[in-house]
Structure formats: C-alpha cells, structure tokens
C-alpha cells in the first residue's frame, strides 16, 4: 500500500506509523512524502525516527551499530533514519535519558534552522522577482516558499519547547 503524507514533526510521524502498524500495515520505505506499507500482524512493529549527526560518513556505522543492538534500520532519507523493532522483542526507545533526548532535539533544531535560513534567502529572491515581473505564478511560488519558511520556524520553536520541557 502506498500513502502520501507530509510530516515535519517526527514525533507525530512516529505516532502515525505506530497507528498504521496497529491496523496491520508495516511501514517499509519512505521517498519524498510517499510511504510504502506491507501487511503485518496488527501491532507487530514499533517505530522510531532519528536524524543523523552529519551529512556524510556515519550512515553505515550507525546502521551496523543499530543492527548489532537488536533494532532494524529500514529506510533512510538523507539524514533521516527510520528504525523498527518487533514488539515481541521488547519496547523500542532510541533515547533513554534526557541528555541524549536533548541532544537529538538539538540536532533536529539545527536541521530546521538551516532549512529556515535557506527558505528566507529563496523568499527574498522570489519576492523581488514577483514585484519586478508582476507574474501571478511567481507570486504563488513566493507564498508557497513563505509557508514552508513559517513551518520550519514553527519546528525550530517546537524543538526549543521540547528541550525546555526535558530540562525541567
């Protein structure tokens, strides 16, 4: 089964994958918004989503470490990694202390902050072009980029809020 969804919040995405698993659909692969599911026993798998430290390097190292620790790396999209574990083999929690949870939200925050910066630059270029040409297509694109920038900004705030919660 194929589903199209756009998630920015990995916590919400995890909840959705868990719900799908409970309905008997095991998530298999992700590609630009498309999620591929396979049939499974209801509730067979638990899922976690993680963001790798850097763009290069540690992907293989991370994956082999996870496999050795008894969890499965099932899909990867750039730095985003999808991990699963059979529910029968115990609970799946990637991060078990507040220090490492805070480190994870800091990674995610940095990711969206960089995205936000790039979107702001794009927005400036687009709005300039829109004013100059008056083209409604370019105006539409400008609004679209603006919406993405605001979503990224919201994610940066969300990460900050989660980090504050964890620090208490």
């Amino acid at each position: 089964m194929l589903k199209f969804r756009i998630y920015f919040d990995k916590d919400a995405e995890e909840v959705w994958l868990k719900e799908m698993s409970l309905k008997g659909w095991a998530f298999k692969k992700f590609l630009i918004g498309f999620y591929i599911f396979e049939e499974c026993e209801p509730g067979e798998y638990n899922y976690q989503i993680d963001l790798l430290d850097n763009w290069k390097g540690d992907k293989k190292d991370f994956a082999s470490f996870m496999e050795e620790s008894g969890v499965e790396v099932i899909s990867q999209w750039y730095r985003w990694i999808y991990i699963r574990k059979r529910a029968s083999e115990g609970p799946l929690e990637m991060y078990t202390d507040s220090e490492s949870k805070i480190a994870q939200y800091n990674r995610i925050k940095k990711f969206f902050r960089l995205g936000l910066l790039l979107e702001i630059v794009c927005f400036m270029i687009e709005i300039n072009a829109a004013i100059r040409t008056g083209s409604s297509l370019i105006w539409l694109l400008t609004v679209f980029i603006g919406i993405i920038a605001l979503t990224f900004l919201q994610m940066v705030w969300k990460c900050n809020w989660k980090i504050e919660q964890l620090k208490q």
Binding site: F65, M66, S69, G70, M94, Y95, T96, D97, S100, A103
Partner: peptide, 22 residues
Amino acid sequence: IQEVLEMTAGRLNLGPGTLYGA
C-alpha cells in the same frame, strides 16, 4: 546493553541511540 540491564536488575535499559551517542 545486556550487562547494564543485569547490573541494575532490569532498571536501566539503555536505548541504542543513547548508547551510540555515548
């Protein structure tokens, strides 16, 4: 992960992500 579980009688179950980072 297993040894820490044993030492703490099942109290401290290190998440693989926490362990990897540490």
